[in-house]
Design a protein around this nucleic acid. Structure first.
Lengths: 236, 236
DNA sequence: CTGCGATACCTGTCTAGTTGTATATATTCG
DNA sequence: CGAATATATACAACTAGACAGGTATCGCAG
């Protein structure tokens, strides 16, 4: 009977609710079952509407958790994505960052080689997520030589930026010695944390930073969401 | 969204950590709660991964105490891929290259802006494929300002390298003014020419090269097969 | 120093709720 | 008929929270 699919009107209603501020960025929508009851349709019809909204970047669904609102449609036109032009030299200094794990453990062979410490030496590993405008931009994993930087663990816990933490440990300045860049598909957990599809293209940078004397102080790996980030190399 | 269960990638990550020596036999893994935070998932999902590892005899969990590592995995699949370390500065000078198309046409708006020529001005477009060891490594598309480089088309046809062709047109030397790097999934034709899966991660670099006077002489886009290439940035 | 209790933390288990996926079926329209 | 739309049902995967049972650690009394 309806020549326009039912789900389009549900999408319009929900998008309108978000636009009017009934559901705001970060809020959880009611469950699919609840929405289905509200609109008097089957859950799959609601899912069709939510899928369209997710495609447009309006909401993001997590299995088990609910559906979260990402943006107000007025702020971010549908289909338009946030573009982030980042200077590679400035990597590590982003608007917001979440630290998910901070632990001390043994260095792997590769990490030990990069940091020029003995294999199995203590290293502080800091993992987390960088965000901009509420959207996840990158996952990072930084490894610091614990013996070379006493107190780095506490410093990382207390201050927000890596630079500042290193300053606390006596490293006034540091530079990148090398950076390797590769493109890799996202695995399941990476995809979930970056809110992209599994298998989406990630930009992985692996770097070693050294202090003015040339001694390695950090070994970092960052996975950028390829669809949201472009790295820009400054002309030396 | 995840066609592979989340916990499998967690199992892979932890098994990899053990294989690389971050956690050694006898060590205690971080608590389930800490791991859940690190991977951004629920504790139960971590437990599922740990259960699989315990099943394999890799770790042992004791109630109240933590999870201890028993031994290194005897067999851990490390993606054995051809690795190509390339200096970004040298991009565009590869062992072998196939020119698939060479034509003169009008510049698009973006190309005109990058090359600092009038929109619609004549440009020479060179497209093709770079190979190493018989394997396709990258697709390239270079755009040259035809009026600024008289005879560039013939030069490109006759000599193998871009550098040499530019020398013929009076550009003794050139440097990169800017490089932008992004990760993008491969479309069907790119996938076919690079011999990778459709949707595989590609590394796209967009650059502008200038002569010693700072005048743009080339605007290039290169798509590297992410699984075969690692770009290495040299320390300036 | 030893022994012991308090406490914080960790794993094991359970219940409930939510999204993702697969299959089957009815209805409508061209 | 065939395609698109919507419904119905069932199960798998993940999240959330709570609680029980076990362990390690630390301070403190003896």
């Amino acid at each position: 009977m309806p020549r326009t699919p039912l789900w389009t009107s549900i999408e319009a209603a929900l998008t309108g609710d978000i636009a009017e501020g009934r559901y705001r960025a970060g809020d959880r929508l009611p469950s699919e079952a609840a929405l289905a009851a509200r609109f008097g349709v089957n859950r799959h019809t609601v899912r069709r509407a939510l899928a369209a909204m997710a495609e447009a970047g309006l909401v993001h669904a997590r299995r088990g958790a609910g559906v979260t609102v990402l943006h107000r449609p007025t702020e971010y036109p549908i289909g338009r994505r946030v573009r982030f032009h980042r200077n590679l030299q400035a990597a590590g200094r982003l608007p917001a960052r979440e630290v998910a794990a901070l632990e001390t453990c043994a260095a792997s062979e590769a990490e030990a080689a990069a940091l020029e410490v003995a294999p199995g030496a203590h290293v502080v590993v800091c993992e987390g997520r960088s965000l901009a405008d509420g959207q996840p931009i990158a996952l990072f994993r930084s490894v610091f030589p614990a013996d070379r930087l006493p107190g780095i663990g506490d410093a990382l816990r207390e201050v927000a930026s890596v630079t500042e933490a290193l300053v606390r440990c006596g490293v006034a300045d540091y530079t990148r010695r090398s950076t390797r860049i590769a493109a890799r598909p996202a695995d399941a957990t990476q995809a979930a944390r970056l809110m992209v599809e599994e298998g989406a293209a990630l930009l992985r940078t692996v770097s070693v930073s050294v202090d003015p004397a040339g001694v390695p102080v950090e070994h970092g790996t960052t996975w950028f969401a390829g669809e949201r980030v472009t790295l820009t190399l400054a002309e030396p």
